[in-house]
Nucleic acid binder design. Structure first.
Lengths: 254, 254
DNA sequence: GATTGTGAAACGCTTCACAGCT
DNA sequence: AGCTGTGAAGCGTTTCACAATC
């Protein structure tokens, strides 16, 4: 029994808040860009602007990782890249399978951002026999009959589902049964998974609907725009938050 | 003058919390499925399970929209579908342009979830002259030289950016200059936009990195799994949250 | 008896503001 | 003088628990 916590108090893994975890990849991207330009150090202010968050939040986030900065100076770029990579588990190689090689699956297979972050597309899987053997992004597509074997042979623990909605749950079940414990779901369905499996989902249509909501509001609000006067109008909001990142990611501890 | 709030107290548009707005599409999807099966009413418990949230949250969410349920009975499915659609602005037609017709852009163009939700792909735009005229998802690709004209002619206010990272900001600037006020960004960059423009972003690699973080933790935690005994092990977590939905969407009021 | 709608408590995240270090 | 690291306050969200309603 040990601690006896049945449904986990909330997902804060070893003291790092989920909201912070969700931003680490953002910082990492900004830092990588700085690193490529051979910038040696950054202040929280500069890095925050590059990542699109505010500096107090960034400093608080980093404080959960440890004291990696130098007061009066800033953060060492290379050192931070390493620390964040390590924290995210990107110093190791993650074999990933993509199931469902339609337009989206192909796009994912071709996406450069994976390889550069420690993710390796170990296999592409599709249910269509006509696809079998056909190379996509230089990787031959394999038939879904062999899904279990592929997972086991490659030691895959992360699976990406890019199938139509109807196929997602069966595919998910097979992935999990074969040993996958993290799933990124692009199919517009709620997946049921056993305890210990994490699911994250990306739903393209949902994002558009949220935009439509705000867009609709704008149309019905032709006043605040006109009365503030002209001057401070077209200023860019460089450091504002954007997108579904100020997450409460709710990674399903399941 | 009016209220005099300069930088918006936080993005709660007309009393509906952002977190709630982000879940409305989820409820809508579940309700649509029930509607297709001709289910007349649902309880908060049932609908919550179908949407992957808990029922208290769902009831609270609906309470912001009004009192649309009947105590002792539940919610009328058709009525709720209508109310949520209206709230999200989906009863009107939203012309959308997709810029960058690579693998991802093509996948988006072919994605069925748009059309069924009031979104209409008004145009596909790409910078490659070789693509011009080529039909993708039945829509001929147009050259980006004509971007401004396309936006204006079609009255487009929502743009989707699926270009490489380097092209995203220039494309964004042109979209905004031409009148687009909501942007869904798939390029791995932070976009700067003027006030009044909303940006949401979807970053495939970030989602995987978050999964990797949790995956790494699992590997170093071989104890809670083994000692709880066998019985209650393989139970499905049907109603748990999943993915980046328990959002604080942080739609950039910009 | 069942189920909604909602105050109030609990929780986690963000922001402030400044002490502490270089 | 400059910038980090962080307690404490402020806010928004979730959850609880029960009165109101059918």
């Amino acid at each position: 029994m040990a601690t006896g916590r049945t449904h986990r108090p909330a997902t804060r893994s070893r003291g790092i808040p989920e909201a912070t975890v969700a931003r680490l990849p953002l910082y990492l991207r900004a830092l990588t860009a700085l690193s490529e330009r051979s910038v040696p150090t950054v202040s929280s202010e500069e890095l925050a602007a590059a990542a699109g968050v505010n500096s107090a939040k960034l400093r608080k986030d980093f404080s959960y990782l440890g004291s990696y900065g130098t007061r009066g100076v800033g953060y060492d770029v290379e050192y931070l890249v390493y620390q964040i990579s390590r924290e995210l588990g990107l110093t190791q190689d993650w074999p990933v399978v993509i199931v469902g090689i339609g337009n989206l699956g192909a796009a994912l297979a071709n996406y450069g951002g994976f390889a550069s972050r420690g993710f390796r597309v170990a296999a592409l899987i599709d249910a269509d026999p006509a696809m079998a053997g056909k190379p996509v992004a230089g990787i031959p597509v394999q038939h879904s009959d062999d899904l279990e074997k592929i997972i086991e042979d490659n030691g895959v623990s992360i699976g990406v589902i890019a199938t139509p909605a109807g196929a997602a749950q069966p595919v998910c079940d097979r992935l999990v049964a074969a040993g996958v414990t993290s799933i990124l779901n692009f199919a517009p369905t709620v997946l049921s998974v056993p305890d210990g499996v994490d699911v994250r989902k990306v739903d393209l249509s949902i994002e558009l609907q949220i935009l439509a909501f705000h867009e609709q509001r704008k149309a019905g609000e032709e006043h605040a725009a006109a009365d503030g006067g002209g001057p401070a109008a077209a200023t860019r909001t460089d450091s504002a938050e954007q997108g579904p990142d100020g997450d409460v990611p709710a990674v399903m501890p399941a």
